[in-house]
Nucleic acid binder design. Structure first.
Length: 669
DNA sequence: GAACCTCTAAACAAGG
DNA sequence: CCCTTGTTTAGAGGTT
């Protein structure tokens, strides 16, 4: 999008074309020296992680989009939405507790993600335009959600409400896509009543919109369920109707095994009046001294009081029934959505793992200015290294939000400013043990770096060294080093003057790089001894380094978001995935530790020679001697290093080969 | 505050 | 003369 001058780095990346540039709220606009205050958050993320995250974000984006539609659209026949007094707060409520705020979302999204997200939004928009009827339905439902959200938000702000109810509604909102909505409306014909009931339950003043909202509902719905025909006052459902309601509810709970998901009536399909589970010490509807009935945050000091409250306030009446129904809809919708997303994720994973040679989702038309042939060749040759993200259905929706948000912030900060920490040295060792940052990072994210204009979180020295060591002969000419940079990193396809100068500077400056006169000229090799010498200080300095790198070229915002995405997705992945194993955990650690020092681990792993996929840890402490026999050791190590940062479920030998075959590519030029 | 690291920028030289 | 390669210096920001 923008063309940078050769000497100075631009502040906007090509991938900001989506208008996303405004997203990063934390970055400074001009100087760029502050970009990554949490500089060390970068590190390990695989494209799959990003995909995973992308899905999450897309869902949220869709939800937000729906809200915007609801509040901003003049939909035919449903303008009452605009009158809703809660529309604005709602959008806030949507994201308040567990959800990612727009800013956060923007920060954690990498450009490719953002692009994908926007595409999803567009697709949604198209769908939305399919019918005003749908829209009316959506708006009704959204309004309902808004009301509840608003209420819950208020209570949450007062610290009265735990997150669960909101989570449920968020999930519902997440799940809302037009087609699903339509199906939902078909399946459950009584939504208006549910809405009314909700409103009543929350004690909101509905005078402004209750009538309107009702008008928008299909008449069939009102015929189905007597509830919704009630005035906005308290319910007066005849007992006969209640019986029907109960039947209806029972049928629902029986029908779709929703009992696991809808704890309202605990196990089975017992009516709310049942005391079975209420007597248990831990009631699913009771926690933190509050009633967790959706929309109810009544304080109950003890279980007895809660049970009383439950029986009194949430007895079998139309309100409770309606709420229950809504909750069931939530669950149903979630299940549908979960199935869809799981399926999609599965397909994505299948695609990524089974067809390495296919273009990756992150193949974006970012900038292919130079070394196009190399790039293409490379992308085909470098397919894998992707960790197996959790493919279980549980991953996509539920558990993700809470864990990462908490963990990431704390852990990231802990690591970033290497405070004193008993864990410090251990952490470092672990990271060193299990992974080779550069190797694994590149292996896992090579496609990303190749296509995204993101600066790799490594020093020039480590990159150069990696390039050299990666070469068949452990030696490269300057030009070959250049080519390696441009081939591996989209970022280095621009600003050539800057980084090439830096490369030369590094080659000359560091003792670890030895110039050797060769037949075909001068080549550069790596003196491992020298390189290791300067390691210790480097490790500690890595966070700084990252910051420098981030800010240095003016990619503060981008990198910040990228790193946030890295951290977020990695963490969430770890959190949610039982599949993630020690190596991955280690890679997570790496995320916060030295990045360039990683590269040194390449040899370290090599030196010990043991190539156990999962770990080749301990012995690498004194890798110094490696230089003497770089040739063989290196080759052995590379696969190891790759595996180290990844889960062991990788599809194997082919990938390694791919990686290796990547090297000869340099001869292309 | 010193020492150290890294990055950027620039000047300069030598060779093709 | 231009470009590439290689060396060197200087300054800035950051961490320990």
């Amino acid at each position: 999008m923008m063309v940078e001058s050769a000497s100075e780095t631009i502040r906007t990346t090509p991938s900001n074309q989506n208008g996303v540039s405004s997203l990063s709220s934390q970055s400074d606009g001009g100087g760029g020296r502050e970009g990554g205050s949490n500089g060390d958050t970068n590190g390990e993320i695989s494209p799959v992680d990003l995909l995973h995250l992308q899905q999450q974000q897309a869902l949220q984006a869709a939800r937000q989009f729906l809200l915007q539609q609801a509040s901003g659209l003049n939909s035919p026949g449903s303008n009452e939405v605009k009158q809703s007094p809660v529309q604005v707060p709602v959008s806030m409520a949507m994201m308040s507790p567990q959800m990612i705020t727009p800013q956060q979302m923007q920060q954690i999204l990498s450009p490719p993600q953002l692009q994908a997200l926007l595409q999803q939004q567009q697709a949604l928009m198209l769908q939305q335009q399919l019918g005003s009827k749908q829209l009316a339905f959506q708006q009704q439902l959204i309004q309902m959600q808004q009301l509840q959200q608003q209420h819950i938000l208020n209570l949450q702000r007062q610290g009265l409400v735990p997150l669960q109810p909101t989570a449920a509604m968020q999930s519902l909102q997440q799940a809302m896509c037009p087609s699903d909505l339509q199906q939902l409306w078909k399946e459950v014909s009584g939504v208006p009543s549910a809405e009314d009931a909700l409103k009543q339950a929350e004690g909101l003043d509905l005078s402004t919109n209750s009538s309107n909202s009702t008008s928008a509902f299909p008449k069939a719905a009102s015929a189905h369920i007597p509830l919704h025909s009630l005035p906005n006052g308290q319910n007066h459902t005849p007992k006969r109707d209640r019986a029907r309601l109960f039947e209806w509810i029972s049928s629902f709970t029986k029908a779709d095994s929703g009992d696991d998901h809808v704890p309202l009536y605990s196990k089975g399909s017992q009516p709310p009046s049942s005391h079975h589970e209420e007597l248990s010490s831990s009631h699913p509807l009771y926690g933190h001294g509050e009633c967790k009935w959706p929309g109810c945050e009544a304080l109950c000091e003890d279980m007895g009081q809660f049970i009383k409250h439950l029986n009194n306030e949430h007895a079998l009446d139309d309100r409770s029934t309606a709420q229950c129904r809504v909750q069931m809809q939530v669950v149903q919708q979630l299940e549908i959505q979960l199935a869809k997303e799981s399926e999609r994720l599965q397909a994505m994973m299948t695609h990524l793992h089974m067809r390495p040679s296919e273009p990756k989702p992150f193949n974006q038309p970012l900038n292919l200015a130079s070394s196009g042939s190399l790039l293409k060749r490379d992308s085909e040759a470098y397919p894998e290294g992707l960790p197996h993200p959790p493919t279980s259905a549980a991953t996509p929706i539920t558990p993700l939000r809470q864990g990462p948000s908490v963990i990431s912030s704390s852990s990231l900060h802990t690591h970033s400013h290497s405070h004193t920490h008993p864990v410090g040295p251990i952490r470092r060792r672990n990271s060193d043990k299990y992974c080779t940052p550069i190797a694994s990072e590149l292996a896992q994210n090579c496609e990303f770096y190749k296509n995204a204009d993101v600066r790799p979180p490594f020093t020039y020295a480590s990159l150069i060294r990696h390039a050299i060591l990666e070469s068949p002969d452990r030696q490269l000419t300057l030009n070959e080093i250049y080519n390696w940079f441009t081939r591996k990193f989209a970022y280095f396809r621009r600003n050539t003057a800057t980084w090439k100068n830096a490369v030369r500077h590094n080659l000359s400056l560091h003792k670890c790089f030895v110039r050797v006169e060769n037949v075909k000229g001068a080549v550069w090799t790596v003196d491992e001894v020298e390189y290791q010498k300067r390691r210790p200080p480097k490790m500690t300095g890595s966070p700084t380094l990252v910051k420098n790198m981030i800010s240095g070229l003016g990619f503060g915002s981008l990198n910040a978001s990228y790193q946030a995405a890295l951290a977020e997705s990695s963490l969430s992945l770890l959190n949610s995935s039982p599949l993630v194993t020690p190596p991955s955990a280690a890679s997570l650690n790496m995320l916060h530790v030295g990045h360039d020092d990683v590269s040194s681990t390449v040899e370290q792993v090599n030196s010990n020679g043991s190539c156990s996929p999962t770990l080749s840890p301990q012995q690498y402490s004194h890798p110094v001697h490696v230089k003497e026999e770089p040739t063989e050791v290196e080759e052995d190590s590379r696969p190891v290093s790759l595996l180290a940062g990844v889960t062991h479920s990788l599809p194997l030998p082919s990938d390694e080969r791919d990686l290796e075959e990547d090297l000869p590519t340099e001869e292309l030029e």
